[in-house]
């Protein structure tokens, strides 16, 4: 059975049947969950990525690049913790996670390469989803920086106000601080309102 969301995918796909989406946002904002929900909705199978255990202070740079091929359609995702599109990398940050000094330096070196790749990856991206946890303050330096960058490079993006299933969520706050941008409140976990998100993507990513 084809998902009712499949039509969004068809409208988003170019003739090369390829879609390249960047998912940016703070750690734990719900990027992995959203990527899984999207591929589930569109292709009927999850991306197979697992969310980490929520950790308030997770600060280690993390980037996942995944591709899924299904019925001749290719979906590419680049999932990046926004503090990871950083201008600085300190290996000492990695030490806190039980890595040895040598390992930490190795990871830091990889992170610098990852950032260079992420910049290049953006060159032919279809569009970016900036995922913001609607229970948190949206006005962070990282969010402002990424929005500025996307605007400046004329990369289409949609702001996702995620976790609206949580009673404390205030997606209106995100709308009010970024009035000039498209903000779509959803729950990636429960698949709530995702149709509106796909609609917005079709409109903005064209």
């Amino acid at each position: 059975m084809q998902s009712i969301f499949r039509r969004f995918l068809n409208r988003l796909l170019g003739k090369d049947k390829k879609l390249k989406i960047g998912l940016y946002g703070h750690p734990n904002s719900g990027k992995t969950t959203l990527a899984n929900t999207m591929t589930n909705d569109w292709l009927g199978k999850p991306l197979g990525l697992t969310s980490e255990i929520p950790h308030e202070t997770r600060k280690v740079y993390k980037q996942e690049r995944v591709s899924i091929n299904h019925n001749g359609v290719e979906l590419d995702f680049d999932i990046i913790d926004t503090p990871g599109i950083a201008t600085k990398i300190d290996y000492k940050n990695f030490l806190k996670y039980g890595l040895s000094e040598v390992e930490a330096k190795e990871r830091a070196k990889e992170a610098t390469k990852g950032i260079i790749e992420a910049i290049k990856w953006l060159d032919d991206v279809t569009g970016v989803l900036l995922v913001i946890d609607a229970t948190k303050d949206p006005l962070t330096q990282a969010n402002i920086t990424i929005i500025g960058n996307l605007e400046a490079r004329k990369i289409p993006f949609v702001i996702v106000a995620n976790k609206i299933d949580i009673p404390e969520a205030t997606p209106e706050r995100i709308t009010s601080v970024f009035p000039q941008h498209t903000v779509v409140p959803i729950s990636a976990l429960h698949g709530e309102n995702t149709g509106n998100l796909y609609d917005a993507m079709v409109k903005r990513f064209k």
Partner: peptide, 27 residues
Amino acid sequence: LSPEEEAELIETTMREIDIENFVGIDI
């Protein structure tokens, strides 16, 4: 800086980071 310059600045910074002495920039 222009967006292109900013992207290039980040890229160059990443290449120049030497872990021990230069951890990057703040803008």
